[in-house]
């Protein structure tokens, strides 16, 4: 009879609210140029949502603003308007809208945009972040966990991977990894923690975070000349692509454990299917 208000748009708005500390810190340090980039990505993303609303009757979503924010923050610099517009169009359309909109997509559209731009225009320099922006991602993650729209398990998994990378070489991060960590942290909150494109089971989420952290460590130490943002985007893309199989494994594990536990409890397995 009664119904709540936690539909897709509410979740998108909450996620947007949670990311506000990060976005505002970035705008504060980026100035007019950052604001201009954000305006452009918002415009293009909004335009594609409008086109799909008119052509395919898909309701537009505030999730477009999430994509726009991530792309504006992480996209390579000095691309020129045309290339940036092309990249975000590709990511929004092929990553999200052709699947039927946010909630039905497989990979975060911002990750797709950034990977597309990274592979398509390898000469363009990647952006750099001042440290306070990475600090601002901490309240963003906290707010997201508190509101229930970001999974604490993914973040815990990634932090665990970072801890392992610190402990195994003997209490210090390798210098190349230390340089990547602030950007990897921003990428974790912006790209990997997207509730739709990440794993949806509890063990799967731990695995998702661990895998992301492990990939960051691998790329940082083994990829000569990789920029921090480039490493982050590649790790986020691979971690996101692995999310379904992590979920599948978690469910298979859950079924096997439950089968065993229930069989032990009832000592009669005839009812098990």
């Amino acid at each position: 009879m009664m119904r709540g208000i936690w539909d897709r748009e509410t979740v998108a708005l909450l996620l947007l609210a949670a990311l506000m500390p990060l976005a505002l810190a970035w705008l504060w340090y980026g100035g007019v140029e950052a604001a201009g980039r954000l305006a452009l990505t918002l415009l293009v993303s909004g335009l594609w949502h409008l086109i799909f609303m008119l052509a395919r009757a898909q309701p537009p979503s505030f999730a477009g603003a999430l994509t726009a924010l991530a792309v504006a923050m992480l996209a390579p610099e000095d691309l020129g308007i045309f290339r940036l517009v092309m990249g975000i169009s590709f990511g929004t359309v092929m990553g999200e809208l052709v699947f039927g909109g946010w909630g039905r997509n497989v990979v975060n559209p911002a990750t797709i945009t950034l990977a597309f731009l990274g592979f398509g225009f390898p000469a363009a320099p990647w952006p750099d972040f001042v440290l306070p922006v990475a600090w601002a991602a901490i309240p963003a993650a906290g707010l997201g966990i508190l509101l229930g729209v970001i999974s604490g398990r993914i973040i815990a998994g990634a932090l665990l991977a970072a801890l392992l990378a610190w402990a195994i070489p003997g209490g210090a991060w390798p210098a190349s990894l230390e340089k990547v960590l602030p950007v990897a942290w921003i990428g974790l909150v912006l790209l990997v923690c997207d509730p739709v494109a990440s794993a949806a089971t509890r063990p799967g989420r731990w695995g998702n975070g661990l895998l992301y952290g492990a990939l960051i460590a691998l790329f940082a130490t083994g990829w000569d000349g990789g920029a921090p943002v480039q490493i982050t985007v590649s790790a986020a893309l691979l971690a996101s692509l692995a999310a379904p199989i992590l979920d599948e494994a978690a469910i298979a594990l859950w079924r096997a454990r439950r089968h065993r536990a229930l069989a032990r409890k009832t000592e009669d397995t005839s009812w098990l299917t």
């Binding site: 979740v11 998108a12 009757a57 909630g103 509730p195």
Partner: peptide, 10 residues
């Protein structure tokens, strides 16, 4: 047109 509405895992 958007039914069934997508579920966002929260």
């Amino acid at each position: 047109a958007a039914r069934p509405v997508p579920l966002i895992p929260t």
